[in-house]
Simulated assay, not measured.
Amino acid sequence: MSSSEVLQALPIPVLVVGQDQRVTGQNGAAAHLFGADLLGRHVATAIRQPALLEAIEAVLVGAPHADARLVFSPHGRDLIYNVHVATLSSERSAILTFLDVSRQEEAGQMRSDFVANVSHELRTPLTALTGFIETLRGPARDDPAARARFLDIMEKEAGRMNRLVTDLLSLGRLEDMGWMRPTDLVELDQVILMVINALNPAAKDRNVDVRASFDTTRPVIVLGDRDQLTQVFTNLTENAIKYGHKGGTVQITVKAVAQMPAFKGPGLEVTVQDDGDGIDSKHLGRLTERFYRVDNHRSRELGGTGLGLAIVKHIVNRHRGRLRIESTPGAGSCFSVTLPVPDPT
C-alpha cells in the first residue's frame, strides 16, 4: 500500500506540508474540512491561527513534533481540533493530524456550567437559612412572632433545596437509562386523570379549572413507564396552573393521530394549554435547558427548580416521543407531547 493510500484510509483529517510551507498532500477528511483545492497552496491560506503556524514552522526547521489547537467554523458550527504536527523526515515535510475534540469540550463546558448553576441554586437558600439561624440565636431569640415567621421561611427554603436535590437525582437517573425504551403498557387516560386529581388542591388555591377531554375512539394506551409519564404530565399541568391566570382554565386534550411521520405509524398527542401571559418566542428554544428560566424571580417564588422541563424532555425522549412548545405573549402557552402507540398485532 502506498503512502497516498494510507493517507486516504485515515478517518481523521491529515495534511502534509513541505519545506516551503505549501500543502503537498491531504486526505478526503481534510478536503472536507478545508476544501479540495488546498494542494499547492501555502498552508497559511487555510489555517490562519498563529500558534498552529508556529508549530508547523518549528517542525520544519528541526523539531521532532509540536502540538497546537485549531478553533474555527468551516460549516457554521464552532469546531475545536487538537493538532499534532510531526516530522516526515523521508520527505523533509511536516504531517498534521487533526483530532476533533469539539464534543469533549462542549461536554466539559456543560459540566462546568451545571456545577456553577447547582452551586448558585443551593447558595441562595443556604445563605437565607444561615442568616435566619443567626437571627434566631440573637435578636429574635425572645420574639415568638419573629421566630414563627422565620421558621416558616426556613421551612420553605429547606423544601426548595429538597426539591432541587430530588430533581437532580431524577435527571441523573433519566440520563443513565435514556437508551432503554420502556416496555410496559400504560393507560394514558388513567395517568392524566390521576394527575388532575393529585393537583386539585393546587388548582383550588388559584381557582383554576383543570379540564380533560379524550378525543379518541381507540384505547389510550402507550408503551411507557407509568411513574415517568405521571411525572411528565404532573410537571406540565402544575406549570399551567402556576403560570396561568388565577380563576382561569387549564385544558388537557388527548387525541389520536393516525399517522406520525416521526414514528412511521400512529400516535397519541397530549396537549396542556393554559391561559397565562404567554412566553416570548426568543425563549421557546431554551425552555428545556437545565436551570433556564424566563422569569427567575417568579419561578423561584413559585417553588420552581429550573429543572422541570429538562426532566420532561428527557422522559419524552426516552419514550421515543416528541415535545413541542407553542406560545404567544398574552394568549397563553401550549405544551404538546406526542407518543407512539404500540402495534396492535
Rank of each mutant, 00 (worst) to 15 (best):
G224V: 09
R218I: 13
K204G: 00
V115I: 14
G35V: 04
T345E: 06
G28E: 15
A198T: 02
M110S: 05
G138C: 11
Q8K: 04
E187M: 07
I279Q: 00
P74C: 12
I12M: 08
K282L: 01
K282F: 01
D67I: 01
L199C: 05
R163K: 13
R181V: 15
L10C: 02
V115Q: 15
V195W: 04
V257T: 05
S112L: 14
I47E: 03
A258R: 10
Y292W: 08
N317Y: 08
V250H: 06
C334A: 08
L268F: 00
E105W: 10
T271Q: 12
L96G: 10
D275M: 03
E269N: 07
L223F: 08
V59H: 08
H314N: 05
G248Y: 12
G25C: 10
R137L: 14
G224F: 11
T338P: 04
S336L: 07
T345G: 03
L39N: 10
F214Q: 05
E134C: 03
H32G: 14
D142E: 14
S333L: 00
V272Q: 02
E5N: 11
A51F: 04
F132N: 10
F214M: 01
Q21E: 15
I80T: 09
G265P: 00
E54T: 12
E326V: 09
L126A: 09
R324K: 10
V101F: 10
T288I: 10
D189Q: 07
N239S: 14
M154N: 02
V6L: 12
H120V: 07
V83S: 11
E91T: 14
T45H: 13
K264T: 12
P74Y: 11
F72M: 08
L79H: 13
D275K: 06
L126R: 06
S213E: 14
R163H: 14
H84K: 11
I153H: 12
I80D: 07
V232C: 07
N239Y: 12
P340D: 04
R286E: 07
A198L: 00
Q228F: 02
D274R: 05
L88S: 05
G178Q: 11
L79R: 15
F335E: 05
A310P: 05
T166F: 06
G278V: 05
P344T: 05
L136Y: 08
Q109D: 03
L88I: 05
Q8I: 05
V257W: 07
S3W: 13
V341N: 02
Q49F: 06
